[in-house]
Design a protein around this nucleic acid. Structure first.
Lengths: 335, 335
DNA sequence: ATGAAAGCGCTAACAT
DNA sequence: ATGTTAGCGCTTTCAT
């Protein structure tokens, strides 16, 4: 059986295609008997509207593009889930984008937006096409940025207070009596990594503690860099008694390295992470960390995008989502 | 600046829209001077083809639908990544679907296929719309199933040999001298869970070992069920000296429970998982487990779908991807 | 309340 | 090699 068209239903019932379209789209302009006859026929003929035709006519795709830096990174999962849920609720489908930190790819996704592939885009990449300044034609597109700030883009952002949360994490270590607290940063100078390090510095400053030479290691958010940075920190003349890592994965690397060095966590050294990823609480020891409301970040970003798509001007708006600090088993009072 | 259309380019250069279309699509039927002039003008006017119009005309969307059971589950990540990579390479974009184990939603995605939202679909759900038997109209759609078998659907499958890999995992424990080997199964009667349990049974049978009463616990693939099943197993009169869990997450739950019970892994009890998820090797102890080529499963599924879309009949085809067994730190010779 | 007609932007069959 | 024409299936004026 070939796919039924609006025309087929119209012919079958002896009405015009326009009436069928109206009846099916619930425009309320169709008299009751006609309406039900049409709906019944559509059902019977197994009618489904052709999206390409509709999109062409309405000039919208009812799809959004969700672009992440690396689809393989579990960290984005819940955000994607949140976006998906909010999108489907609003009748939008979600196209998946993956830049792999490749500038060209990022441009491609902006292009897809302009092609009509999608009506709007949620960027979770922390990067922008590397052009001179920020082109105005891009800035006017319906884009919402989540998680990682993209400076001077003017796009509305949904984020957490990275610096504030980092400060809180370090404050926890301070409250446990630690004074020799080191930091394993993310890939400086990425904004998020800088902000988390800034929070660390602030907390130390507020506690009146100097940051000793070598106490700020720089990693790349991956397990192995947590290990190597940890080793460096421990080889210092005055090694730290606590480590604040800029993300959970590096914290795990650090903990594993400490175990290899025979240093018990949290008895000998405390470790704090950031992100509260999947299974962070299942690790041994369960990781003390900053929990981000990832799903909510996703839904909020999508909601914001819907408003932008509805024509609201949200330029420069920043929505801060609350984090919560989870004290678990990887931190203990200073020996 | 309004979006440029083919018509605009045609007018600007005094050629026909058809010629512009041909030049831009590289059909090779356009003379060189014209061709470059057109390409240059397209570039200059910042022309981008309108996908809805093209899709309507060509009756294809150049998109595929990738439907998983739960977007939030990290296990699907690499598969999604593989699908995405193969899709983009072939010029397809990827729409994300999420069923949350909801039969209605699954039907919705089949409908999207018929709407023209996508040209084909990759199902990673292990379920099918619950209708009487399997409707022929669905069976003819371009669908490829990955990971979890969907019986009697006729769709081509990309899978691993779950039973075989499970057998190998248990064989490893046997080779270490274990005889009291228990199993924590997935949610029976889901096919994948059944297959893995079948592999366990086979290995035991081949070793001439009976499976004691209570040695087959049934979980749900989640951490907590690993804990509770483990507790049950350990409370048996003759507790096992080794546990084979149907997935890594339950294996972690079991290991954590064992730690709580004061039983060292692997010294007192060995534990084997299945899947080799993100950070499985970062756990303590690093998990001995069955590694699935997840990214390749994704790319292979997409490739198969491309063949189906090209008109090849692949009904009933099953592609088996090789697994590899990773011996790590959670298993040791029987005490 | 319904119908007639136009047109979204593109590609492809057919003509030249 | 290029132009002419038609039409994909839908929605939306405009007319009645």
């Amino acid at each position: 059986m070939n796919r039924a068209r609006i025309k087929d239903i119209a012919q079958e019932l002896g009405v015009s295609p326009a009436t069928v379209s109206r009846a099916l789209s619930d425009s309320g302009l169709v008299a009751e008997p006609t309406r039900s006859r049409i709906r019944e026929a559509a059902q019977r003929l197994n009618y489904r509207p052709n999206v390409s035709a509709r999109n062409l006519r309405t000039q919208r795709s009812m799809a959004v593009l969700m672009v992440v830096r690396d689809v393989g990174n579990p960290f984005y999962l819940d955000i994607m889930k949140g976006v998906e849920a909010a999108a489907r609720e609003a009748g939008y489908s979600v196209l998946m984008g993956n830049t792999e930190n490749n500038a060209e790819r990022e441009v491609e996704y902006f292009d897809m937006l302009r092609d009509g592939h999608a009506d709007g885009m949620i960027l979770i990449t922390g990067k922008l096409p590397e052009r001179e300044g920020f082109p105005q034609e891009l800035a006017d597109l319906p884009v919402v940025v989540a998680l990682e700030p993209i400076e001077e883009s003017g796009f509305p952002h949904v984020m957490i207070d990275n610096a504030g949360a980092a400060r809180e994490a370090v404050a926890h270590l301070l409250s446990l009596g630690h004074t020799r607290i080191a930091h394993i940063a993310g890939p400086i100078p990425e904004p998020m990594a800088v902000l988390r390090r800034e929070g660390y510095r602030q907390a130390m400053r507020e506690a009146g503690l100097p940051i000793p030479q070598g106490y700020e290691a720089v990693g790349d958010y991956l397990l192995r860099s947590g290990e190597t940075c940890c080793r460096e920190l421990l080889s210092l003349a005055q090694p730290p008694t606590a480590i604040f890592a800029a993300n959970d994965e590096m914290a795990f690397g650090a903990i594993n390295e400490l175990r290899r060095l025979g240093l018990a966590v949290p008895e000998k050294i405390s470790v704090v992470g950031f992100d509260d990823i999947f299974l962070s609480q299942a690790f041994y020891p369960p990781l003390t960390t900053v929990s981000q409301p990832r799903t909510e970040i996703g839904t909020e970003a999508m909601r914001l995008l819907l408003k932008v798509l509805a024509g609201e001007d949200r330029t420069g708006e920043v929505v801060m989502m609350p984090t919560s600090f989870r004290v678990r088993g990887s931190t203990a009072p200073a020996g």
